[in-house]
Structures are given as structure tokens and as C-alpha cells.
Design a protein around this nucleic acid. Sequence first.
DNA 1: CTGTTAGCGCGTTCAC
DNA 2: GTGAACGCGCTAACAG
Lengths: 339, 339
Amino acid sequence: MSEVTIRDVAKAAGVGVGTVSRVLNNHPSVREATRKKVEEAIRALNYHPHSIARQLSLGKTSNIGVMAPFFIRPASVERLRGVETILAEHKYDLVLYNVETKERRDQLFDILPRGDMFDGLLIFTLSPSDRVAERLLHGRVPVVLVDASHPRLNRVIIDDVKGGYMATKHLIDLGHERIAYISDILESPFEHVGASSLRYQGYQQALNEAGIPLRSEYYRQDQHGIPQARKMAHDLLALPEPPTAIFAASDTQAIGVLQAAHDRGVAVPEQLSVIGFDDIEIAEFLKLTTIHQPLFTSGVEGAALLFQCIENPEKAREAQEILLPLRLIERATTAPPGS
Amino acid sequence: MSEVTIRDVAKAAGVGVGTVSRVLNNHPSVREATRKKVEEAIRALNYHPHSIARQLSLGKTSNIGVMAPFFIRPASVERLRGVETILAEHKYDLVLYNVETKERRDQLFDILPRGDMFDGLLIFTLSPSDRVAERLLHGRVPVVLVDASHPRLNRVIIDDVKGGYMATKHLIDLGHERIAYISDILESPFEHVGASSLRYQGYQQALNEAGIPLRSEYYRQDQHGIPQARKMAHDLLALPEPPTAIFAASDTQAIGVLQAAHDRGVAVPEQLSVIGFDDIEIAEFLKLTTIHQPLFTSGVEGAALLFQCIENPEKAREAQEILLPLRLIERATTAPPGS
DNA sequence: CTGTTAGCGCGTTCAC
DNA sequence: GTGAACGCGCTAACAG
């Protein structure tokens, strides 16, 4: 089965391949009678056009590529969902390039601009260097960044500095002064992927503004993940003068903090305030105070912008920036210190 | 950029296209000197082979298709991660077909057996009918089912009946008699996707064995999701004679139950025992007692089996069944009734 | 060893 | 309105 080609159909219907092709793409100029005949043969042979051949001939793939680090993280998944929604509308499929190492990332940055395999590329969370951006810009297909940034590329982002500021400010307004920040690794150009270090800037900014000195022992970084965050929180809580509030760069990490607090019998929010970032689904269940960012929407906007670029290539050079709003969601893990 | 073809390289290097192709696929029979020359030209022109053309010529795509309902669910994501691990080893890419409606499912079942676009297909959680299985069997590419079953297809599964039994038995052994079961919708051939109804069978079996009569008011079903589960649990808890234990068909749903208990001030596990299914990442954090199934492993095993089939086509007809083990993980949400 | 040529399956002119 | 020939970019078989 399924070795049947357009030629077989043509033969069976007693017409030329051109006619079959015209029927397939419902071209107007084909007599009703012949159309019927061809459709009959198609059904009889259970013929389906070979999409690869079609792609080569058309120069179009009907695929969208998504390059994402750790697509398993709740935030990425939520974004992907948004993307999927738009793809379905356009009858496009999704080719996923997961990246978990620096090598893989660079390899993909090298290969992907070529852009065979898909008609447009979405890059999550990985901000390209100038050199890479240049390649992307001159590649065969349009590119849109989501949760990543570069001045010359189309992008949908949030203001991470502001987000960090908002979270920290909330804690300060509550009366906290011993405020810690934990995040994934900032230095690694791969791991940090920007956001955490921008949020850190916001954190510093809020502290400065309030005249609260920065304490290096209140800042910890490690690989992303619940257990790592738990460990960092333990270290923080074991300090001679432990923080009264912890700002975690992601809700996932906030969960680790909650866990550590629980381990040590530290009451949240009475003895420790915890604020996260993202507002992933379980955040509500955990009553976690957090900074909400429009995850699903970012996928929708990114995909929509990408399709605009595909349909209208000039658009691709515009380097539009879509800034999504942030919102503080006060739930039950933050309160005045010692309350 | 990137419109450069193999012919341009050939011209630039002053050789024939055949030679360039040979260099590309590092065919042994090409003199070192010419190879150098060609590689030089390739670099100079920044040439990358067009993969679509390559695929058409080779009849091989280096893609694996994954068809999954709601790939956003933690369980699917975890499986995908397992798949990704194996794909990376084989230098294959992932084409994702998300299905959220019956129509989409049927459309994919119709199109996908054609198997252009990928060299092998993984189907998650969707058990095909006999008719579809037949199509899959005669399709162009091998298929492996993960968390889905059909006697004629290769598959990696768990014993869901047994899982349901284990969960219920655990509750019974603890002394519970008023045991409820909540799940997603069983009837919908799409939504239920088998597992929940099999687990229900296990639930009934354990009850029967213990001589505990089945109570229809103790069984609820609704769409999958935390809020829906929360509502079902509320209904259960509002019963004149509420259950003392609830078995949720998935951890996600168990979270909804926990939430409802919290809403009503019902202490877990003192006044209500809760057991889930899957053992997703947050289950540990929530101290949720649950039935652990090897999610990540199922992806690994499924992908590995698929590659075996790709390399060895006879294997594809074998309809091998890989049964993954289940394990009861006792944490802190179950206890004797009224303890 | 290497250049040339014939497909891979389909869409698309271009004559008829 | 419709059939035949060509091209998409590449690999493989065949000469040389």
C-alpha cells in the first residue's frame, strides 16, 4: 500500500498526470466529467500525494519549526500550546527541536537558518548573538523570537527587569528587608537564557531604590529544577541571618523553596514569604504568590506574527517587538515579615 | 543566501555534482585532494544540502512522527522527553501531531499511515480501532503504540487494570470501605483513551474481592483537568455519606481533589485519603500517594522499539508487547479512615 | 577515482 | 480542457 503515485492514478483514470495534479489542487480548468473520473481513481487506489515530493516541487513545507530549550518545562509547554492553536488554524505541522546542551544549540543555530524542513522558525528562550542573528536574518525563512530578544529580529517578550522589580517591590512593600533571590545559572550563556539575569537586575534595582544593601549571600544560582531550588533554599535558611523572603526566578523553583521551608518547619508566609515567576497552572493550587506572564498568549502571538512574516516577507525585516504585560498575583505565600 | 545548490558547489570546486555528493556523504572513494577542494568550496559558499531534496532522493526523512492527545499533559510531556533522548542519539528530529478533537484524530489516522514526512510513527495514548490498526499495519512506516494497545501492533504499555486494583486495594487494606473513583470521561472513545476505564475495572475488581458493594454515586467522570476534578470531589464530599477515600485516575485530578478537601476544611489524610496515578514530578512535592508508572521510560522504550523496526522491517510485524512495571508509592495522603 | 545521467513524486508551463 | 516535457536538489548507478 501507499506506493501508489500520481502516475498510477493517471493511468487508472485514463488521463495525464497533469490532469490529476489539477484535480488535486482543484484547479478550475478541468471538466466536471474528468474530475469525477479522477476522483474515482484516487479513491479506488487510496492515493495520497507524497508530501515530500510536493514540498520539493512547491518550495513550501507547511511545517513550522520550533527550537526550544527544555521544552518539558511547564512554561515552554504552555507556550507550545499557544503555538499549536495557531498552527492548527493554518493547517501547519510542528517540527520540534529540543535543545538541552550548548553544542546542540549551536548546531541548530548553524543548520536551522537554512530553513528547509519548515517555512518559518520560532525560537523560544534562546537569545541569539549578533552573529547568529545575522545568519537568521539572511536565512531562507522568517524567524520570530519568543521569550528571547535581539534588536534586529521579530520578537514577543516581557519586561523581565520590570518583572524582577515588581516581585521584589512587593516584598519590600510588605516590609521585608532580608530578601533573597534564587535562579538558574546566570553565567552560562545557555542556561541563563537571559530572563533570570534580567530579573536579577530588577531585584537589585528595587533594593537600591529602597536603600536596602545587596547581600551576596542572599543570592544563589544552580541548574533549574525543584531539587536544586530546594537545596538552595535550605542553604539560605541555614544562614546565621536567614532571609525573611525569597524571590524565585520561576514557579518551579519556588516549589523547591516551599519544600525546603516545609522540611525545616518554617511557616509560609508567617516566617518566610515566597514569590515565584510565571504563574504556571499549579501555582494557583499552591496558592503561590507570583508574577503572571502570558505564557499561552506568547505562543499565540509568536505564531501569528510568524505567519504574517510568511505571507508578507517584508514584515520579516521589520524587527517588531511585541511586549506582553506582567501582573502581580497575590496569593497566600507572601505576607509581612514575622506576621 | 542559502539558495546555493550542489551544482554551484560543483562549479566552484571545478568538479561534478556526483563528487560533491560523495564528499557530503563521505564516500570513501574520493581523492584527498579533491575532497579538500570540495570542502573548501562548501565552506566558502556556506552550502548546506537541502534536506527535502535529500529526503525525496533517499526515500528517508530522518524524522519520527509522534501523534499524541493533549501533549501538554505532564504525563505526555514526560514520555516525549524519553522519546527525545533516543531521537537525539539517532540524529532524528521530532514531528509532533497534537490531537485535541475526535475529528483531528481521525484525520491523522487517515493521513499518517502514508508516512511521508517521517520514517516511523509513535502513537501515544490513542488505541486504534481494528480498521485503523489494519491501515497502520499496511502503511509505509513502522508504528509503535505507547500507552495504547492493539493486539496486532507493537506497543509499550502498563497493566492499567492492575494499577486500578493496586490503588483500590491499598485503600481497602488501610480499612476504607467508602471508596470513590473519579476519572475523565469513559464513554468518549476519544477522551477516555482506554486507561481510565481499565483502571475503573481494577477498582471494581478490588471492591468485589473485598465484598464491598459498588456504589454508583461514588463514581464520577468529567473532562480531564484540575478544576473539573475539584468540582467532582466537592460533589462527592457533599454526599450525605461521603467517601473516606478517593482514587483519582491521574495525579492531575488528584490535585483537584486535594484542593476540594482543602476548600472544605477536610483534613487529608485524617478525614480523607487520596491516591493518584502516574507519579508526575510534583506528586512528590505534594506528598501524594500514587501509583508510579514509568513515564519517561515508556518514551525511551517506545522510541527504541521503533528504531528496531525501522532498521529491521520484519520486526514491525511482530506486534511485540512491552509491559512496564507499576509501583505503589505510599506518601502522606493516605491513612486509615478517621485516623 | 570522477563526470554524466536517470530517477525520487509532484507542480507547472507550453503546445495541442 | 488536457497531455507531454521539464525542473525542484539530491543520490546512485553507470560509464569512463
